[in-house]
Design a protein around this nucleic acid. Structure first.
Lengths: 222, 222
DNA sequence: CGGAGGATTGACTGAGATCAATTACGGTGG
DNA sequence: CCACCGTAATTGATCTCAGTCAATCCTCCG
């Protein structure tokens, strides 16, 4: 399922104190997950919090009949699995080959009790997640399929490190379950943006996208 | 727009420290809002945080063409307007005649710096909001209209103090904008639940609803 | 009693879902 | 290196759930 690895370069994040905590505690506490493997399940006890060293993770909820809503994608540097209760509220799965750092939740809470800057970090991170969820509610409840896909591409563009081409780690189905659509509708929307010259594909994969006109993309996202 | 009032009984909430703070600082810092009046606007500087003494408030985001997504309804006892940045991320409006308490945001932040239990309260409250938003994303992205309306009624039932009849302070359009539907679809869904004997109306208004079969309602919410 | 806003109901439309076929890509073994 | 296979993505045809448009009813007011 997973295997130990050793790697230490990581994209800097805003949450400096927590990232520092992660750095301090790197006692081979890194693990590797293969595509599709579960990191933790919804309602499982939340023992750790996680930071992605490399790779990508999807967090989702399921309905009993299999309908899935992905609440967030986590990329390199992102911290996830942060809960305030005892149980995880999402299932988290590696999308691609992913390396992850662990921190014991109790340890973080203890640190927060003693160190106000850690407590502030925790609140800041939770607020960031809340802000994202709030924006995503507007998208899910009130935007059209084209607006959703455009907004998704803008979000990924903003979060991607490489400036030129953006490599999407997730498949169309993942995008669909993030946007409350079907994979066919996502594909059609991307085709429209392609045919309108707003984006193009790099190489012969549909996962590497180059944005040709960010203004028009932003308009489409309105 | 609003007028001073004096009232002090309030439903107890989970967030005891913050509520205590609100109590301490009640120096005629209560205001009354009439239906439809704005308490604060999106992107306005967040100077205060608020607690409802009596009434109901809707928090929403707008798209440029007027499409609206209500992110939450706030009822008596609820604290809202809590931001971690300098600006509000929602517009908040009174739905009915509403009395609200204020706390200076700076004051709360200062208290949190000195008192760890206030800091914990702040984090707890933000986490509660996040949890609600996460559940609501699943509803908005993946549930059918009937499931949405059933889930809404269950939520309001859980939050309502009176056990028998539930008095909805909001109109069908508000419900629709909360659930990502149109008011007609909400009306039809309620009619279906009515015709199936799951709910009935109290008196001759469509705002007072009595749940006749919570099990079947929960099933409908799947 | 009359008027305005809220809610329901009906007829029709349409955006996105579903079903289905085809094409493209990436990994594997020969 | 290439043929093969399974998965991913695209594209087309059709369907359906919820949206739109519109009429009516209801309720609470002045």
């Amino acid at each position: 399922m997973f295997s130990r690895v050793n790697q230490n370069s990581i994209r800097p994040t805003i949450s400096s104190e927590l990232t520092a905590l992660f750095r301090e505690r790197v006692l081979s506490s890194e693990f590797h997950y293969h595509p599709g493997t579960e990191i933790f399940g919804e309602a499982e006890p939340a023992e750790f919090i996680y930071q992605i060293v490399e790779g990508a993770v999807r967090s989702y909820k399921l309905l009993s009949d299999g309908r899935r809503q992905i609440g967030a994608f986590h990329l390199a540097g992102d911290i996830f699995g942060l809960e305030n209760g005892d149980a995880h509220r999402f299932t988290a799965e590696a999308i691609v080959n992913t390396t992850v750092r662990f921190l014991k939740r109790r340890g973080v809470e203890d640190a927060a009790m003693g160190d106000m800057s850690v407590a502030r970090d925790l609140l800041f991170l939770t607020t960031k997640n809340l802000q994202h969820a709030e924006d995503h509610m507007l998208l899910l409840g009130r935007k059209t399929s084209l607006e959703k896909v455009a907004a998704f591409l803008i979000e990924m563009d903003r979060r991607s490190t490489a400036a030129g081409v953006m490599e999407l780690p997730m498949c169309r189905r993942d995008i669909a379950d993030y946007l409350g659509l079907t994979l066919e509708t996502v594909s059609r929307a991307i085709s429209i943006l392609h045919s309108e010259g707003i984006l193009t594909f790099a190489g012969q994969t549909q996962r590497r996208i180059v944005l040709l006109n960010r203004n028009r993309l932003a308009q489409a996202a309105a």
